[in-house]
Design a protein around this nucleic acid. Structure first.
Lengths: 207, 207
DNA sequence: GTCTATAACGAGATAGAC
DNA sequence: GTCTATCTCGTTATAGAC
């Protein structure tokens, strides 16, 4: 390997993997350096070499998570054409996270927001801003191309999409049933496409 | 006063008030007996007299919160007639919680679910079950009376309502803007009333 | 890079006086 | 009911050897 800087080594990546999973399962205040160290069969002191403190570890977790999420959005842009399919793919990202009982990393941190170090707070906000900006563009295009229909500004609809999907993860996880999430996501997406569906059912009703 | 049993005294009520606020602000894993004691100018040992442990305190918090929420739902039943107005009143309950930067107590606990004692987990589930059952009845009646319109089973729409409102609280709180919550709630409710709105805009378009 | 050892603090909890 | 005192354990963090 060529890179051996603190926070960027392969050991650091393994630490982030374990810490990420624990954070999504139990929350930032629900796991400790000792938990991570035990799972990796190393000592706590070893973790401090890679991440000086829990706050720095937390920042690195959000930044990596946000980067991967942005990459997934770019893939959606490439692989799909119409906006409605993009929304389905977006919801599928959340469903994938929910498999393995995990909450969205930033959704979890949103709950614990008031207890987070300022740098982590700022990174959480940035994650949501980026998500809503991407969704706003997709929704706007969907309305222009006719695959989506809604009366509100795209900005406001985007906020509902993020809220509903994060909330569906939040409230489905205790039940351990992905179907609960999927149902809420399906109803949400159908409501954003509803005008067309209503027009269809209206045609069917009057036929 | 006549009642002096442990967990039911006026002192216990003050403890619950403080603990409830801290839980909604910081999460169950984000506050301690020391925090509550300091705010009440008593010692930790005094708290243990009223609630033997943090798990028992947590159970009492959920039960009181769920009881008050159920009472608020009963008031909505009395004070409002049509289902759409009931939904607006339901969303207003959440908005009221959000004032003062608080998260829904059970929404917060849903995030921390995996770290909770079993009795608290069961109580959280019960809170959501009761909420969705109430919403399902309201939605069903709304469809029957014509103030609401949606294609899915009322049970599924109810799940979306809970998800979207909890998620709107979750994602709005970091921004400190109630308007973010209100916007998402408004878009959600308009989507449940949309068929009528569409019919109106269709009339307007063809007029 | 990882270890041992330890510091420094906070958490939940209990015993027993008042 | 509330207190003082204490216990035990977990958590974050650092120093310094290997």
């Amino acid at each position: 390997m060529s890179v051996n800087e603190r926070g960027n080594s392969e050991s650091a990546a393994r630490i982030l993997d374990v810490a990420e999973r624990l954070l999504q399962l139990r929350g930032f205040n629900g796991f400790s350096y000792a938990d991570v160290a035990a799972e990796l069969n190393v000592t706590k002191a070893s973790l401090h070499y890679h991440f000086s403190g829990k706050a720095e570890l937390g920042e690195a977790l959000i930044k990596r998570y946000a980067r991967r999420f942005a990459e997934a959005l770019a893939v959606i842009e490439e692989d799909t054409t119409d906006a409605h399919t993009k929304l389905e793919a977006y919801a599928a990202l959340y469903a994938e996270v929910l498999r393995g009982q995990r909450m969205c990393l930033c959704g979890m941190l949103a709950a614990e927001y008031q207890t987070l170090p300022p740098a982590m707070q700022a990174a959480v906000i940035q994650f949501f801003d980026e998500n809503e900006a991407w969704l706003e563009r997709v929704l706007e295009r969907g309305r222009a191309e006719g695959t989506l229909g809604f009366g509100e500004p795209a900005r406001e609809a985007a906020h509902l999409v993020v809220s509903a999907l994060q909330g569906a993860m939040l409230t489905s996880r205790p039940y351990g049933e992905i179907s609960r999430f999927q149902t809420a996501a399906d109803v949400l997406l159908s409501s954003l496409a509803r005008p067309a569906a209503v027009a269809q059912s209206a045609r069917g009703a009057t036929a």
